[in-house]
Design a protein around this nucleic acid. Structure first.
Length: 325
DNA sequence: ATACACGCCTGCTGGC
DNA sequence: TGCCAGCAGGCGTGTA
């Protein structure tokens, strides 16, 4: 499932192909891939065709591609192509490839650079594939970030164009999403303060993209195991030190998953070249029910929480004493 | 304000 | 063998 590490792998893979590229043609194969777009498919295609992409940016599980203003709006309303992979979304790079079974949108772009032999680069296709259609794309207007810091991770461009106009702007529909733990502008103390105001279980807070973004069910379970915390520990009763420790484990887990190219269980999650990641081999508890805890050997269990499954070690992560609510 | 159930969707699995 | 319920899960929305 695409969570922060998987989305970052995709963003990084797209970056060299789309930075400075011009959109040649847009083909919306399935309108359901535009649930985040405020308008019909024709509007989406019209607003994207002919535009130049400035960069590939990510915050949490959202990606966006700032569009260079074409001058018609005087630059007053900067726009971006927004993409969320949902449960099963993929963005594949290729040229003249056979349509994937669940192809939803095809975007032809003309790369902005030149090949090594000096000739102009040949057009490339961005194929948005999504089996379960929880993901979608949109053209959205951008608004300034409230803290004035760069809106998200933009890879190499972070150092190359630190003051580009789009750096401190964020798509409207992403503006309510909190920064992710790998963002240099992430405010640890703010996270701790927000968390300690919540009465719900700590896992619910970890999954709340308005508090901290990028974490899904897999990395929530892995981080809680690493921090030795039960998923239903009331967030407002956790000591500050525990929350800072949890945050450190979250960063460690996300960082290691990123190094491994993300987590793939099947063909659901792949990078822009269709390849799987390897972090699934290092999962301690997620999907490991019935197997020994890597730390103490106790059998890992799977339990229902928040209408989804949670995995934990009964010894390392004991249930809270007091019954909540 | 926060909490939480629900719908969206397809493919796979397990039980009968 | 075939059928169908159950499950997977992020996010936006609606309700209390």
């Amino acid at each position: 499932m695409p969570e922060l590490p998987e989305v970052e792998v995709v963003r990084a893979g797209l970056e060299p192909a789309v930075t400075g590229a011009r959109v040649l043609h847009v083909d919306v194969v399935d309108d359901r891939a535009l649930t985040r777009h405020d308008g019909p498919a024709e509007d989406f295609a019209e607003r994207l065709t002919g535009r130049t992409i400035a960069a590939a940016v990510r915050r949490g599980k959202f990606m966006w591609f700032p569009l260079v203003s074409d001058g018609s709006d005087g630059g007053a309303r900067p726009e971006a192509l927004v993409a969320h992979l949902g449960m099963s979304g993929q963005i594949l790079l290729g040229r003249g490839r056979e349509a994937a079974k669940h192809r939803r949108i095809l975007i032809d772009v003309q790369p902005g650079g030149t090949a090594r032999d000096g000739s102009p680069e040949v057009p490339v296709e961005l194929e948005f594939v999504d089996q379960r259609t929880f993901g979608s794309m949109a053209i959205d207007t951008m608004v300034p970030t409230i803290d004035g810091a760069p809106a998200g991770s933009a890879g190499a461009v972070d150092s190359r164009e630190p003051d580009a106009m789009w750096r401190r702007a964020i798509p409207t529909q992403v503006s309510h999403i909190a920064r992710d733990p790998l963002d240099p502008a992430f405010d640890d103390d703010r996270f701790v303060a927000m968390t300690r105001k919540r009465s719900s279980g700590i896992k619910r807070v970890l999954l709340d993209q308005g508090v901290v973004s990028g974490i899904g069910n897999i990395y929530a379970d892995e981080s809680l195991w690493a921090a030795k915390l039960h998923f239903d520990r009331p967030a407002d009763r956790l000591p500050r030190a525990d929350l800072h420790r949890l945050l450190a484990e979250v960063r460690s887990v996300l960082g290691r998953a990123l190094e491994d190219g993300g987590t793939s269980f099947d063909a659901q999650y792949v990078n822009v070249n269709g390849q799987s990641g390897y972090f699934s081999q290092r999962l301690a508890v997620y999907g490991q029910q019935g197997k020994p805890c890597p730390r103490c050997g106790t059998t890992v269990v799977r339990e229902a929480f928040m209408n989804r499954s949670s995995h934990r070690c009964p010894v390392c992560q004991p249930a809270p004493r007091q019954r909540r609510r």
